[in-house]
Amino acid sequence: MAEGTIATAGGIAARHEETGLWGFTKPQAVAFLLMLAFVLVSPFFLYPVFLMKVLCFALFACAFNLLIGYVGLLSFGHAAYFGMGAYITGYAAKAWGVPPELAILMGGATGALLGIPFGWLAIRRAGIYFAMITLALAQMVYFFALQAPFTGGEDGIQAIPRGTLFGVFDLTADLTMYWLVAAIFLAGFLLIHRIVHSPFGQVMKAIRDNEPRATSLGYRTDDYKLMAFVLSATLAGIAGGTKALVFNIATLTDVHWAMSGEVVLMSLVGGLGTIFGPVVGAAVIITMQNYLAEFGAWVLVIQGVIFIACVLAFRRGILGEIAHALRVKL
């Protein structure tokens, strides 16, 4: 492993992985229980809409981190899957009256359908080129969204109905919606955890650490990279679709390159290559945006400064630093 490789900045402190429940190490199990407790208790203390936003972005960041943290591919265009997922979910729910569970799945399918050709193109190059290609492809999606009639151009799709889950639960109540979002987030989180710890995930990590060696062991590394890419794009689409239902809106902001930058920032702040890092990063950045919303463009400056600080001094991120200090894996 090359020194300072971006994907492993999260720090693999613990060499011996003792896996207990569901493949979690002990510290991870503790962290997971803490997170679970927070997800279950917090809506009774904090504003549910804010929490839903955090959870949507946490899932988005986890999906992004699956690619950078475990395959070593930095995608700078994840807004494309998130934003188009939001558009399709929103359009299906509003124009076709599709029930919410199906609409969100359609958002995920959109992410997958975009991810297949984009991933197929982008994995032809690695490193910096991969980042630039994903960014350029996402910009193409942005221009498409700007011009296509169904996205509503500058206005976006507004007044998207949340609908009734399985025809039983009315989602217009924030708390009901919260439990749906929490369930989607936890399912996505556990899915990513299982992927990372599956034999498939082991090959992903082998590719991250030394691709030529993985190839020489007989793995078709391109197939693995593409699969990881599509999984990541699918989960990003689901996160976008869920977000569209929560806020009843899907706009150009969701497909803009700044959104791609934000998800990179969240993962970086929380800790690249740590399973809980993106969740913490999303919480931190969304909270910050919430408090600084009134300061307008200063948010941009502060985000930039955090980016710079993270890259120069704080490459492990919050959870990476904690894991490093405690010599555990998180």
């Binding site: 971006i6 930058g261 200063w298 400056v301 930039g304 710079i308 490459r315």
Partner: peptide, 18 residues
Amino acid sequence: DHLYGLLLTFGCALVIEG
């Protein structure tokens, strides 16, 4: 890793634009 250079200059771009 070269990607850190990309991330750093992205941060700089945000600061300057902001």
